[in-house]
Amino acid sequence: MRRIRLNRKQKIVRNLLVCIVLGLVVYTMLGFPPYTVQGMLERMERKYLLPDLEPILADRVERKYSTGWFHEIDYDTYLLAKTADDTYIFTMYRRNFLRVRADYGRNPKIGRGTLCTAWDGTLYVAGPFRDAAAATAQVTAQRTTQYITSATGARETVKGETRTFTFQGEKQGDDLFAFRYRAEDHRPNGFGEVPDEECDLENAAYQWYRGYIVDLEEWRGYSVLHADLPVHVTLYGEDGAVLDTLDLTVDTYELHFHH
């Protein structure tokens, strides 16, 4: 069979066609990963069966680390979006080179009418806040210790002191208030106990919620409990009058967990 000789322009066209095919193969093998906020919203619509999502907040965080062999960078995109009928969703996507994974290490959160979530030292409350000019949030933490008997699965929960943290909100568009809860002089969790009087909300969410296994002598550690902390939000109008109040919750892990 006679070999077809291609000129340079034909070779370019051939190579571009091969590129398109290979690109589609790679993209399919990676599971159609989204690389833009719009692409992520389209995946969220399908995954969570929610139509026509509009972004309220898209925050991209870069995380560098070493695997021992390579220095790698993860790009985390935190997304808060809403549907036309005020269903709110919060989720995150992690991109590592070409691969993108949804909800990696963090559960999504869906709410009707309002949604309260937190990451990286800021509490976010989303809702139809067009008429609200200002807002405050009161988050109440209660020292909770759980004693677990592993043999029987029995759990004894002891509740202790409570502390309410109050934050002033910053309006970010018609649908969002942000409340910065990480103190200026915040001491990171996991590097020794922070004295109670120096605890901010992030510290309290971490070290006030502990679980101990009581019947395992060799197990001296503790677990950090999940707990829903009540969040009381007060919305104010332009004239300073109270427009509305909301009673929401936020999980302790949302408040203190870092990826």
């Binding site: 070779k11 370019i12 190579n15 571009l16 091969v18 590129c19 290979l22 690109g23 193969v25 790679v26 093998m29 070409l98």
Partner: peptide, 12 residues
């Protein structure tokens, strides 16, 4: 385009 083909083949 040759480099692109090689890169995509390696990625695949």
């Amino acid at each position: 385009t040759r480099i692109l083909v090689l890169a995509l083949a390696a990625a695949a």
